[in-house]
Amino acid sequence: MIQQTPGRIYLADQRGLTETSRFRRHSTFNFDGYQQEFKEPFGRLRALNEETLAGGHRLELTAETASLVLVLPIIGAVGVAGGSTVATVQVEEAQLLHLPAQSVISFTNLYETELISFLHIWLTAADFPAPPQLFSFDFQALENNLAVIVSAAAQAGIALSLGRFAGRQEAVYSPQNAEAHLFAFVLAGAFEVEGRLLHEKDGLALWQAAAVELEALSNDALVLVLEF
């Protein structure tokens, strides 16, 4: 019998929804006012939010504990201010910043009328603050390849990889740390990841994984793999 890597699926249609006239947030884990059973943090990973922010608006959030926040734009640029960081983060960039406990981070839509969309991923900070860092990448480098965007060796023990695949293309993710937790999140399309079927905006938590096998089940399928 083939032994399956331990894991847990987080379905897209079971994400929490927080919505006002200014923003719409889908939360994979408990976050801010959204609190539900079985949506507790996965290891250091405390939140994975997909945020849509209306034109000209600003959103402020408070870090309850010392946190690493990874910001990844999906549509449009987002202004980010938090800790020692003030930056405009574009598509094909990822911003990593450290927030002391009880500090505030703000996200600003710099366009007057256009919506923007971005991920903000929250992890418990390591013992020592990580310096802010901006990572750039080219979507062409993601074609049928899991490209490393953030290396675990560079920043506080976390790594981020992205890949965009044609249908039936395969990849294997090898963790940089044998004891790491992994979280895969499908941004577009569908994948089979370690024997689990994942559709758009589904997530999969994995642990005790020596390697992770992925296969795209649709064209232009886009997946994120976070290691921590």
Rank of each mutant, 00 (worst) to 15 (best):
A211E: 12
D13C: 07
L115K: 09
L222H: 02
D127F: 07
I149Y: 00
T88C: 13
L99G: 13
I149C: 02
G195F: 01
L96Q: 10
P129V: 11
F135V: 04
I158L: 14
V91N: 07
N49H: 05
A166N: 15
F29E: 03
L70H: 00
S174A: 09
V212R: 00
I149H: 01
A130M: 13
N219G: 15
E112M: 08
L134V: 06
V193H: 02
G55F: 10
Q133N: 12
R164E: 07
F42P: 15
S161D: 02
A178Y: 07
L142Y: 01
A156F: 00
T20E: 08
P132Y: 12
G83A: 14
R164W: 03
P73Q: 01
N177A: 11
A87C: 10
Q4T: 11
T20G: 08
V225I: 15
S27H: 13
L11N: 08
F29W: 05
A156Y: 01
P131K: 03
G157I: 03
N145P: 05
G157C: 09
Q208F: 02
E179F: 03
G79R: 12
R46Y: 00
Q36F: 11
A47Q: 02
T52Y: 09
T18P: 05
I75T: 14
P129R: 15
G79Y: 07
A159S: 12
E200A: 10
T85R: 01
A126N: 13
M1E: 10
A205I: 00
L142I: 06
F29K: 09
S136N: 13
H98C: 04
L96T: 05
S151V: 00
